[in-house]
């Protein structure tokens, strides 16, 4: 069964998003929380890598973290879905395990 991967650091600061993207399999989900949400910005350096990954994985951002950082929902890269904390819980429950890329 598939895995929920969480990333919480900006990809401009740490390699954790890159490492996460290198370690997912078909059907996994990736959730960007905390500072990692800045990587989801449309036109940003990581938007393309995230879009590319959507062929095999679903990608989410935590909406409250996005809002807190002044990024509007319509300004995130295409195909990335927004969830709230309840959605985070549902994602964790829906996968077999949670892997945090701390």
């Amino acid at each position: 069964m598939s895995t929920l991967h969480t990333v919480n650091k900006s990809p401009f600061e740490r390699p954790s998003l890159k490492t996460c993207l290198d370690h997912v399999v078909q059907g996994d989900a990736i959730l960007l929380i905390e500072d990692a949400v800045v990587g989801a910005r449309k036109g940003g350096a990581f938007a393309e890598a995230l879009s590319h990954k959507q062929a095999s994985c679903s990608i989410y951002v935590l909406a409250p973290d996005l809002a807190a950082r002044g990024i509007k929902a319509e300004d995130i890269a295409e195909g990335i879905a927004l969830v709230d904390y309840g959605g985070f819980v549902d994602l964790a429950a829906g996968k077999a395990r949670v892997c945090a890329w701390l």
Binding site: T3, D22, H23, V25, A96, R97, C99, A100, W101
Partner: peptide, 16 residues
């Protein structure tokens, strides 16, 4: 890296 990826998907509990 591909084997490491597989390892992750085969474990129940992941502590990072």
């Amino acid at each position: 890296r591909s084997e490491m990826t597989k390892l992750i998907s085969e474990h129940d509990v992941i502590l990072s």
